[in-house]
């Protein structure tokens, strides 16, 4: 039952994506929507990304310093580990899980409300491909903005780590040495590539849940929750494959 349901849902998702991936009817309107979504989904998420990344960067730095302090460990270990955690997992995967909560629920509830208030029907009556008109700018908007969010997250994680250095947890020199030690630039690219996939998952899966709402406000809430849960699960599964693939 669960498997057949999942296959059916996946089929519906593919059909919806087939409708979404079509050439916009009016490029002028598409770009207007696209810019609007970049602001709503990307720019408006900068604050939370910076805040969380700053504190997580600081906390990782403190935890590493406290828990692996040993005369056998080089002094730069704390900075080195902080950098690797931020680059390899936090700024791409964990940040996208956080964004699945913020952006995913926003997308699902917005589209779900459009469905129950007949705004989507109004678009269809006008002869507009509502799926493409509403969802495509959201997917492209988030996919465009996510690399910027990843970079901001990495940088602010390091800023958080430096804040602990200023508070005396570690010396600035040791931290800087650790952050620079054995740096592999590919990790930044791998992080960005992972986040692009996660951005697609968040925006498309949340749109799918919102677009297929039937009923009223209760169902919109349910769709919003389902969007966050499904997106988060898929991000975690995709993370395993992508980590293996990109490392």
């Amino acid at each position: 039952m669960f498997i057949s349901n999942s296959i059916e849902k996946f089929g519906e998702y593919l059909c919806l994506m087939g409708r979404v991936m079509s050439v916009p009817e009016r490029w002028r309107m598409f770009f207007k929507q696209y810019v609007k979504e970049m602001v709503a989904l990307g720019v408006d998420s900068i604050g939370i990304v910076l805040l969380i990344s700053f504190f997580i960067g600081a906390v990782i730095c403190i935890q590493i310093k406290l828990n692996i302090a040993s005369p056998w460990m080089p002094a730069f270990t704390t900075g080195y580990t902080t950098r690797e955690i931020m680059l390899l997992e936090f700024s791409s995967s964990i940040m996208c899980l956080i964004l699945a909560g913020k952006v995913g629920s926003n997308i699902a509830s917005e589209i779900g409300t459009m469905r129950v208030t007949q705004q989507i029907d109004a678009l269809e009556i006008m002869g507009i491909n509502s799926a493409s008109f509403i969802i495509l700018p959201k997917i492209l908007g988030l996919v465009t903005m996510i690399p910027m969010l990843v970079i901001f997250s990495i940088v602010f994680g390091f800023v958080g780590a430096y804040a602990t250095a200023l508070a005396g947890v570690i010396t600035v020199d040791d931290l800087t040495l650790g952050l620079q030690h054995d740096f592999v630039p590919w990790y930044v690219w791998a992080s960005i590539i992972k986040s692009l996939v996660f951005a697609f998952i968040i925006s498309s899966v949340s749109s799918f849940h919102g677009y297929n709402v039937e009923g009223g406000s209760f169902d919109v809430g349910k769709a919003s929750t389902n969007a966050v849960v499904s997106s988060s699960m898929l991000i975690l599964f995709a993370d395993i494959f992508l980590t293996q693939l990109l490392s």
């Binding site: 007949q118 029907d121 109004a122 009556i125």
Partner: peptide, 11 residues
């Protein structure tokens, strides 16, 4: 076609 919906359906 033009349509007026029960709930107006304004964007």
């Amino acid at each position: 076609m033009g349509m007026i919906f029960q709930a107006a359906a304004l964007f």
